[in-house]
């Protein structure tokens, strides 16, 4: 976990200080897509290796749907309360 914050922070500094030129940034974008696709592939591999996940996929999908619904409800409720309390004037319909 420490490593995660270290590389994130290091990258952030490089981006913030503008150490990369246009060309470097484009390369960074391409590498990012490549790593993302590879990692999603690897995620698929660990799912495929694990017979239990595959067998339980409908159940896991149901759990995921619950998570999505409650995260949305919680977010909307929190933003509604905060906006009523602090952002009243702006953003009325």
């Amino acid at each position: 976990m420490g490593k995660i914050f270290l590389v994130l922070g290091l990258g952030f500094l490089i981006g913030y200080k503008g150490l990369l030129q246009e060309k470097g940034l484009r390369l960074n974008g391409r590498l990012q897509t490549a790593f993302l696709l590879l990692l999603i592939f690897c995620m698929g591999v660990s799912i495929g290796r694990n017979g239990e996940i595959l067998r339980n996929l409908p159940l896991l999908g149901g759990k995921a749907l619950l998570f999505a619904v409650f995260a949305i409800l919680g977010s909307t409720l929190a933003v509604y309360c905060l906006s009523r309390l602090f952002l009243q004037k702006e953003g009325k319909k």
Partner: peptide, 23 residues
């Protein structure tokens, strides 16, 4: 092997994501 290689790739991805964030 893919499982173990992916932890290095994750760090590379997050480094790259960090650069985008800083911008």
């Amino acid at each position: 092997f893919l499982d173990s290689a992916s932890s290095v790739m994750l760090l590379a991805l997050l480094f790259s994501v960090g650069i985008d964030m800083g911008r």
